[in-house]
Nucleic acid binder design. Structure first.
Lengths: 338, 338
DNA sequence: ATGAAAGCGCTAACAA
DNA sequence: TTGTTAGCGCTTTCAT
């Protein structure tokens, strides 16, 4: 059995037409008579021919590959995002080429270069914070970029996020309504827009009620850091509620509180997280949290990206998607709540 | 600012050499005099030139892309595998093109075709059970395939797994030593080699001790199925220990037992899982489980794949990697254990 | 060691 | 609508 690849020439020969004819039959919206099309398709099927996307990419300049830049995969939110993103893009004839960037300021330049090398049609960055340089370079090279779950102020880069400021507010209001008086915040990484926005909305809403968080610590979106922050918090001035910057950290906080410190949740302290990953709904945590509507965020990401690929001069856009507070049992529930 | 791409011709012109010379300078182990190399590199740097991998792929037939076929990303084990795999491959100059296959018998044919279309240099399948057809087709097309965390009996396909039969045995022996007498098994999907092997090792070891599992239910590697199985088990004949086919299901079992059924773990029932995902070590579960040594499995996967890419006629190999039982508190600990 | 020429598999002008 | 003719950007014999 030979490993010979079938080319369009083979099909052309067999169908008794030119290679261009074959090409046109396999190209969206190209002109080919039904008769030719039929002949070509038959020959192709008999030969097991399929166009070579690489060759096609070279000439069209479109690879139908989307570069995905991703840092952490330990927070359940991102694997799910990847799954949805990939599935949705495959449905549109695109595929995802993965570029892992080490969590802390790795060789971004090398990655950027590779991204450009592969002539990807577009780029999605997920959980990548230091993307300024990258995104700038890619934009400059004419490759559309959409930041997923991160925003970049005024940088002229498209971004899709949930309404993080509003989400932070929601949490503050919920906690206030629950009668909490000493509310602390273990924030998401303050180098990330999500971390900052959630903290801001939260603090602002408290300020509106003439109060303030007892303390704000940066949990870096990291489990260990969150554990340390929790201990620190409890040693000095124990709060009666903690808003944690994402679910991943909130689980760490709950674990530490319950199992290390013997604190009852929500009896002694209420905990609220952010993301609503599936684990948040598991009864071991049953975490009250702000949902980031993954499906709609993915949808928006893809729409934005594809729109930008189709019309390169289209202005960039930032999309913010509202997410509800999922009330569960990790935080005391205000009286008379529906 | 123009979007013009720099080609090897530009570099050649600037360096005063031929395009072949440029090519050789950028090709591993090609002959170029130090002088030429220097001139070319300088010109390239000045122009910001980098070879186009797609064009290179067309001629060499090597895309330096590895196709990753993956089904579920909700079990923490696979995102981590993906992360490690991608990082390690990037270090070797490869990248991962993702192909999601819907959990239940989706259009495998379409995916297979696309895999072939892209002329990937190799394929890794992860958590893909029905891979027979796919892998066969790819092998036939001369593309090396390595199955990660699945084995295929006698199919002449390379595979990397942990020692699942031995792992199952370990669990049985541990539970027996702990004095359990009514041991049930909520098994991993019996359509998957891992599910079958673990169940087999487990049952065999019990048989060696002249006993048998009180019941064996297929949990399908699915949270909901595992919950149902747990309820079913508890209604009819409650065991004093359950070996669960993977951690992901074990968490569901523990949640159901504790929060739905008010069962104490390990007071009333001991639970043992499989995988040792990070979550297993979190204090909320603190799950006794058999570790699948991820890093070494990934290493073996990559070694096998790259070896096969380099010498296509090399025979396929199945590698099995031992994993220790991680003893934690979800199962009663035998007396006098170190 | 180097350049000229040929070609990977395909699509895009251009005529016909 | 169709075929012919050029390439896309690169690597690779084959001479030199």
């Amino acid at each position: 059995m030979t490993k010979t690849r079938i080319t369009s020439a083979d099909v052309a020969a067999r169908a008794g037409v030119s290679r261009s004819a074959v090409s046109r039959v396999f190209t969206e919206g190209a002109s080919a008579s039904p008769k030719t099309a039929q002949k070509v398709r038959r020959a192709a099927k008999e030969l097991g021919y399929r166009p070579n996307p690489l060759a096609r990419a070279m000439i069209t300049g479109k690879s139908r590959i989307i570069g995905l830049l991703v840092a952490y995969l330990d927070n359940q939110f991102y694997p799910l995002a990847l799954e949805r993103l990939s599935t949705a893009l495959e449905a549109q004839g695109y595929h995802i080429l993965v570029f892992m960037v080490g969590n802390r300021g790795t060789d971004l330049d090398r990655v950027t270069q590779q991204l450009l090398d592969y002539r990807v049609d577009g780029i999605v960055t997920a959980s990548v914070d230091m993307s300024n340089a990258v995104t700038q370079a890619c934009q400059a090279a004419g490759i559309p970029v959409v930041m997923f779950n991160r925003a970049q102020d005024g940088a002229g880069i498209s971004a899709v996020t949930s309404a993080n400021v509003a989400g932070g507010r929601q949490v503050a209001e919920f906690l206030l309504a629950g009668g909490h008086t000493r509310i602390a915040h273990i924030a998401g990484w303050q180098g990330a827009s999500t971390g900052r926005d959630r903290a801001r909305g939260f603090t602002e809403a408290l300020a509106d009620a003439d109060t303030a968080p007892t303390r704000v610590l940066d949990g870096m979106y990291d489990r260990t850091a969150a554990i340390d922050a929790t201990r620190n918090l409890m040693e000095r001035d124990p709060p009666d509620a903690i808003f944690v910057g994402n679910d991943h950290m909130a689980f760490a906080v709950m674990d530490t509180l319950r199992h290390d410190l013997g604190v009852s949740i929500p009896g002694d302290i209420s905990i609220v997280g952010y993301d609503d990953v599936p684990l948040a709904a598991w009864p071991s945590y049953d975490l009250t949290t702000v949902r980031q509507p993954l499906n709609r965020m993915i949808e928006a990401t893809i729409d934005t990206l594809l729109a930008q690929i189709e019309s390169p001069n289209r202005p960039t856009q930032s999309i913010e998607i509202d997410g509800p507070l999922m009330v569960r049992t990790s935080a005391r529930i205000p009286e008379g709540t529906s």
